[in-house]
Design a protein around this nucleic acid. Sequence first.
DNA 1: AGGACGCCATCTGTATGCAAGTTGTAAGGA
DNA 2: TCCTTACAACTTGCATACAGATGGCGTCCT
Lengths: 224, 224
Amino acid sequence: MKQVRRREVIRTGTTVEQMVRAIADMIVTGAILPGEKLDEISLASRFEVSRTPVREALRELGAMGLVGREPNRSAVVTNVTETHLHSMFEAMAELEGICARLSAERMTVDERRALELEHRGSMRLVHAGAEEDYAAHNTEFHTRLYRGAHNDHVFEMVTQTRARLAPFRRAQFRLPGRLARSYEEHDQIVTAIIRADAVAAGQAAYSHVAIVSDASAVFATAGE
Amino acid sequence: MKQVRRREVIRTGTTVEQMVRAIADMIVTGAILPGEKLDEISLASRFEVSRTPVREALRELGAMGLVGREPNRSAVVTNVTETHLHSMFEAMAELEGICARLSAERMTVDERRALELEHRGSMRLVHAGAEEDYAAHNTEFHTRLYRGAHNDHVFEMVTQTRARLAPFRRAQFRLPGRLARSYEEHDQIVTAIIRADAVAAGQAAYSHVAIVSDASAVFATAGE
DNA sequence: AGGACGCCATCTGTATGCAAGTTGTAAGGA
DNA sequence: TCCTTACAACTTGCATACAGATGGCGTCCT
């Protein structure tokens, strides 16, 4: 059976980098679902380029782990096994813990203040139950943690891991009461960082992610 | 000035994956040095293929972080800054710590036994001062730690990080007394893992790598 | 003599064509 | 009826050709 679903043509600037980002976004945002095939010709026509740059984009996405590639087979949006998913969430928790710990030690005064402001500002989103907006805030909040660690390589790893987990985490804030609990957990992290309590920050961040992982694992399997 | 140095033709099987591995090996083993340009035409003739698969291989290496790519420029073996190098070593220490900690918790009896055997067997290499052989043992030893963590994603991250650090770590066992000290540090890690003492294993592994990092940083800069 | 402009060589980026491999399907036989 | 097998359509892998960009070098002007 063919992919009958019609896709609109995408007119970015058609450089390979932009295609990579565009396809990655589609995967991360769920416009393309895990397991779905990405054949080169369709993508080429969607982006209005030839197959050559598409192939390069797919290979890059493969190296990033977002799509799987086998010889003479279409690229496929990676459909990770449950154990691999678990390993990614666990790794994510470890990485977040590292970032929070290092942030507690290394953040500048300005960074600490900015983090706290960002965090406090999200309280009204919790009260309003604005899931979408809170999700955006959440991304920003965590990105600040990653940057605050002042370690480029850790930043790279955590960013990539987050990208690969994104497809499985989409519905996390739909869980009843998750917003409020998330805020609480952020609060512990922020407090520890302001205090420069590295151990507490690391632990708080670790469990924050670990909790989300449990919740999302349920959703990921339920959504299939 | 042209790259006058003659390179022999490489006759692998000429699939892109093999080219990626071959080029990655050259970078990791130092056959190609950081900062060196990798122009597509030369590589194509060396591998006896056209530019197309070479381009894909280079893009993949770029995604892996082994080479840098800018628009309309040759790929360049990544010449990391000192701070980035430091960040990678720090990340490596964190990852090793995680692996050792998880290994202490999760290794099977067989894995623990194999690790210990591998370790004990290396003692004679220390006494013989066999740097090359000890380096091979060292790789094997650490790989066992990575596998023992039973976490695919962590394994992936630590493996990739190690690959990117390899060019800067080549001479590490040339330092006087380093072999014996390395053995001692391995011993602490093994002991902790056998005891299933996660915290001790993590700390021992962390400092083991952190120490190596200091030593190698010296060498990396001295080698320029 | 020094600097600026422009041309040329060279390399990267993309398109297209062809060969090889894979998958789905249909026909034939057990 | 079900399984096997062969063929056909389609998709990927690679090579080649062409277009666009960049950097170096020489020339010309000041």
